[in-house]
Amino acid sequence: TKWTYLEQKEWETIEDDIAALEEKGQTLQSAMAENASDFAQLTQLQQELDNAEAALAEKWERWEYLSQFAKD
């Protein structure tokens, strides 16, 4: 099976996307530590972290799928 044009373009940027999401997660965790006493801010940051972690999991799944084509 060959890549579509869009899959090829996605493969070219997916590792950068993953790195950016990992960095965002680390930044949010640091912000949570700094705002540990502010419940409202902490709740917002936790929601953002949850969203970033979900997006990261999706990117990793997509990376695994696309990497099968890279091996062929």
Rank of each mutant, 00 (worst) to 15 (best):
Q29V: 08
A36F: 12
L6N: 10
A70S: 11
L21D: 05
T1K: 15
Y5W: 13
E15L: 14
A52C: 06
Q8V: 07
A31K: 09
L21S: 06
A19W: 05
A55I: 04
A57R: 09
K59C: 09
Q68T: 11
L42A: 09
A40R: 13
S30T: 14
W11M: 00
A33H: 13
Y65V: 09
E64S: 09
E10Q: 04
L28A: 01
F69A: 02
K24D: 02
Q29F: 06
W3L: 14
N35I: 01
Q41E: 12
E34T: 09
F39C: 14
A40M: 12
L45P: 00
L21M: 11
D72P: 14
W11S: 05
T4M: 09
T4W: 11
A20H: 05
Y5N: 11
N35L: 07
A33N: 15
T13M: 12
N35V: 00
L56E: 02
A55E: 03
Q68R: 11
D50Y: 12
E64N: 14
L45H: 00
D16Y: 09
W60A: 02
E22T: 01
K24R: 09
S30N: 12
E58G: 01
Q68I: 08
Q47F: 14
D72I: 15
S37Y: 07
T4N: 06
E7M: 04
F69N: 00
A70D: 07
D16G: 10
D17R: 07
R62S: 04
A19Q: 05
L56M: 07
D16I: 00
A31H: 02
E7A: 01
A20Y: 06
A57N: 09
W3S: 10
Q41S: 11
F69S: 02
I14Y: 04
I14T: 07
K24V: 08
Q8P: 02
E61M: 10
L6A: 12
A70C: 08
R62Y: 06
Q26E: 14
E53K: 07
R62Q: 12
R62K: 11
T1R: 15
N51A: 12
E22H: 04
Q46T: 03
F69T: 00
D17P: 04
A55V: 10
M32Q: 04
E12I: 00
S30L: 14
A54C: 03
D16L: 10
W60F: 13
F39G: 15
L66Y: 05
A57Y: 06
Q41P: 03
E53L: 12
G25W: 03
D16W: 07
I18A: 02
